[in-house]
C-alpha cells in the first residue's frame, strides 16, 4: 500500500494561562497535547482518529495541516514535510473543520472562485469543477445568496466544497459531522465515501463511534495525546463493538495515568 501520510513521534506542548490552569484544575504551567504520536495513512483509505475531547486529535490535525508547528517530530504528506516545506504541504491537502467558517458577506460562488485562485486552479478547470461540486451538493440553488443568509447545513456544504476546490489527493476532516443535522451529516459521510472510492486518502477526527464503524478502514485511538491503539478496524474490535473496545482502553490508560 502506498503511504500518503506518515506521522512520526509528534509532540506538542501548550503553555496554560491562569484561566486555563483553573479550568484544567492543575498547577502545571504546560499541557502536553500530543505526546510522541506516530501513525500512517495509506492511499485510498479513510483513517479515523478516535478520542475524547482534549485527547489531542485537533492539535494533531492542525499540525498536519500546517496551522501550528510541532515541538518535536514531523508529519510527511505525500513526500512533503510539514516542518521543512509547509507551503508544499498546503498545496496537497484539503482541510475542513467545524471551526472553518466563511465570510457572511460573500456568496458561495464568489468564495469558490476566490479560494480556487488562492490554490492556483486554472480558470477553466475551476469552472468545470465548480459546476460538478455545486450540482453534487445542490449549491447551485443558493450559489448567489450571501453566506450569512444560508442555513448551517448549507454553510457546511459550501465549506466542504471550498476545502477541496483544488481537488487534493489528501483530505483532513476535523469532526466532519459535528453540529450537523442528520440529513447534512449523511450527505457529508456519503461524500467522504465517494472521495475514498475516487482514490483519495482521508483522515478524520471524531468521537462518534458509529461514524468510525461506518466509514473508516483503519482507526487510531488517542487518549491524553498518546496513540493507544492503531490498526484495521476489524483487528482492533475483534467482533466486539467499537464503543466497548474504546472504553476498555480508556479505563486502562486513564487508570494507569492516575
Amino acid at each position: 500500500m502506498e503511504e500518503i501520510l506518515r506521522v512520526e513521534n509528534l509532540k506538542k506542548t501548550f503553555k496554560l494561562s491562569r484561566k486555563q490552569q483553573a479550568l484544567e484544575k492543575t498547577k502545571n504551567k504546560y499541557k502536553v497535547a500530543v505526546n510522541g504520536l506516530s501513525f500512517s495513512a495509506y492511499k485510498g483509505e479513510i483513517f479515523g482518529l478516535l478520542g475524547p475531547n482534549g485527547a489531542g486529535k485537533t492539535t494533531t490535525l492542525r499540525i498536519i495541516s500546517t496551522l501550528i508547528r510541532a515541538d518535536e517530530g514531523d508529519a510527511v504528506v505525500d513526500g512533503e514535510s510539514v516542518r521543512k516545506n509547509p507551503d508544499g504541504v498546503r498545496k496537497k491537502i484539503g482541510f475542513l473543520t467545524g471551526e472553518l467558517k466563511l465570510e457572511d458577506f460573500f456568496t458561495p460562488d464568489y468564495l469558490y472562485d476566490y479560494f480556487s485562485a488562492l490554490h492556483d486552479v486554472p480558470k477553466e478547470e475551476s469552472e468545470r469543477r465548480k459546476a460538478k461540486l455545486f450540482s453534487r451538493f445542490g449549491i447551485e440553488k443558493f450559489a448567489h445568496v450571501k453566506v450569512g443568509d444560508l442555513s448551517t447545513g448549507m454553510k457546511q456544504k459550501v465549506s466542504l466544497v471550498i476545502s477541496i476546490v483544488h481537488d487534493p489527493d489528501f483530505i483532513i476532516f476535523d469532526e466532519p459531522t459535528n453540529g450537523l443535522d442528520v440529513i447534512t451529516a449523511k450527505t457529508v459521510t456519503d461524500f467522504l465515501l465517494e472521495l475514498k472510492n475516487e482514490g483519495k486518502t482521508i483522515v478524520i477526527s471524531t468521537h462518534i463511534f458509529s461514524l468510525v464503524e461506518k466509514i473508516c478502514d483503519r482507526v487510531g485511538i488517542i487518549i491524553n495525546g498518546k496513540m493507544t491503539a492503531e490498526g484495521n478496524l476489524k483487528e482492533i474490535t475483534r467482533e466486539k463493538p467499537l464503543e466497548e473496545v474504546f472504553f476498555d482502553i480508556y479505563s486502562r490508560e486513564v487508570g494507569s495515568d492516575e
Binding site: L67, R90, L100, L102, L118
Partner: peptide, 15 residues
Amino acid sequence: EKERGTIATLLVTPI
C-alpha cells in the same frame, strides 16, 4: 476574521 473563524480557512491555502 479571528472572531468569525475565517482566518484559518485562509491560512490552510498555499498563499
